[in-house]
């Protein structure tokens, strides 16, 4: 039988997201201490697909263990009471950085296109998108 999940835990893919202290207390009480890969919550196969990254089964195995451990570790930030704290996206936030609206030379097109894996008439060739 599944142990009752304490209130406040959000569950997705069998994942708990809550402060580490509460998570540890919960896993102790329920005897889930050793199921760390289940509680850490990262589904490497699913996320790799979001990242448009093909992984082999061997890579998925290795990353699943390593990243579960890392995700467990980064959960320590949720031990802090962050109520009322504003997020920082940049160390020195600048607002409204304007420049004059002037036409300036761009990079040389031929020089740029020399880096293209496949190109024709100054355009990139990609596999067919629309049948």
């Amino acid at each position: 039988m599944e142990p009752a999940v304490p209130a406040g835990i959000r569950s997705r893919h069998g994942v708990c997201v809550l402060p580490m202290s509460r998570l540890q207390a919960f896993t102790r009480e329920t005897g889930m201490d050793h199921e760390s890969t289940d509680t850490s919550g990262i589904d490497v196969r699913y996320v790799a697909n979001l990242a448009r990254l093909h992984l082999t089964d061997a890579e998925i195995d290795t990353f699943q263990g390593q990243l579960s451990q890392i995700v467990d570790y980064v959960q320590t930030i949720n031990q802090l009471d962050l109520t009322g704290i504003a997020p920082t996206s940049h160390a020195h936030p600048l607002e409204n950085v304007f420049r004059a609206d002037e036409v300036k030379p761009s990079l040389d097109r031929a020089e740029v296109m020399r880096n293209a894996p496949q190109s024709r008439d100054g355009q990139f060739i990609v596999p067919k998108i629309v049948e």
């Binding site: 997201v17 996320v47 997020p87 920082t88």
Partner: peptide, 25 residues
């Protein structure tokens, strides 16, 4: 890339990325 995609993904953004930005403060 996988860790970064995960912490930004739907359902986890607040718990990881947003929390981390607050701790950064």
């Amino acid at each position: 890339i996988i860790l970064g995609t995960y912490v930004l993904s739907s359902g986890y953004y607040d718990a990881y990325y947003l929390s981390a930005q607050k701790v950064r403060t």
